[in-house]
């Protein structure tokens, strides 16, 4: 069982991911915005942060950067929607290279659970 913070601005997507994680026995805190997410992390200990990096309102790439710059932060999974036409292409590449794992949407529940347990079991 892990403590997971989930950041995604699309409520239905977030709901589905959280439901999948909870069913697998994890404890999930949800938020829809990168800045709120960082605030939550500063107050509570998490094993893992899963964040969308392409939220129009707040930049998920900043979240990855902030968390991975800290010394003993949680593991980070970056979720990307793929596709072209997203302006912050370099930022995106940077954050995917910094994250501990990347999940490309659309991913299956099995992909999600496998990636999470791969990062948190050892």
């Amino acid at each position: 069982m892990c403590q997971i913070l989930l950041i995604d601005d699309m409520q239905p997507v977030r709901h589905a991911i959280a439901a999948t994680l909870r069913k697998a026995g994890h404890e999930v805190v949800e938020t829809d915005d990168g800045n709120k997410g960082l605030e939550i992390v500063s107050k509570k200990q998490f094993d893992l942060v899963i964040t969308d990096i392409m939220m129009p309102a707040s930049d998920g790439t900043d979240v990855v950067y902030a968390l991975k710059s800290a010394k003993a932060g949680p593991k980070v999974i970056a979720m990307s929607g793929g596709g072209a036409g997203i302006p912050a292409k370099e930022a995106l590449q940077l954050s995917t290279s910094q994250a501990d794992a990347v999940l490309k949407k659309p991913f299956t529940n099995e992909d999600l659970i496998e990636t999470v347990s791969g990062l948190t079991s050892n």
Partner: peptide
């Protein structure tokens, strides 16, 4: 993809 994810996942 964002719309389909909750459908398939849930």
């Amino acid at each position: 993809n964002n719309l389909l994810h909750p459908i398939t996942s849930l």
